[in-house]
């Protein structure tokens, strides 16, 4: 075998091996980012359509509008709602971007507040990252990882 061919084999194979790893990493990346990068979908803004205010009565249901659990409804009571991947959460998320105990919704005098429980990737209320407790108005999207939630009356 000619020396040049052997050198070609030598580096060519290493290149091929690393190409495999590169391909594998692309899959890992696609998985982490939830599908192909560039696929942008957004929740239809519902805040613009307030509907009837049900004279002073607060929101009644928590609806999941996006993410794996899309369509899930939780009827609101007086109890706080724990959201996270942990099994004992009120809403158990199957979302890679959610923390075990991610956020909590609490009822104070008929109004609901969202609090972040020190999650890794944060909770967003309508574009704004939740730091302290924030008042949620009906129709405002709450985003946790790939999941979006909103309160409806």
């Amino acid at each position: 075998m000619a020396e040049i061919v052997l050198q070609g084999f030598r580096f060519g194979f290493l290149l091929l091996l690393w190409l495999f790893i590169f391909a594998a990493f692309r899959v890992v990346r696609a998985d982490l980012l939830g599908g192909r990068a560039g696929r942008v979908a957004s929740v239809p803004p519902r805040a613009a359509a307030p509907g009837k205010k049900r004279n002073g009565k607060g929101p009644r249901t928590l609806v999941v509008t996006a993410g794996p659990l899309s369509g899930t409804k939780i009827t609101l009571g007086e109890q706080p709602i724990l959201i996270g991947r942990a099994d004992d959460s009120t809403l158990v998320l199957t979302d890679d971007f959610a923390s075990s105990r991610h956020a909590r919704l609490t009822n104070r005098g008929g109004q609901w507040y969202v609090e972040d429980l020190g999650s890794t990737n944060g909770t967003y209320l309508d574009q704004q990252r939740v730091q302290g407790p924030l008042l949620i108005s009906p129709g405002q999207p709450i985003r946790i990882g790939q999941t979006a939630l909103e309160l409806r009356s």
């Binding site: 939830g34 979908a41 929740v43 967003y124 574009q127 999941t147």
Partner: peptide, 10 residues
């Protein structure tokens, strides 16, 4: 501040 991917199509 928001992640567009956070909202996958329902």
């Amino acid at each position: 501040s928001t992640d567009p991917r956070a909202a996958a199509a329902p």
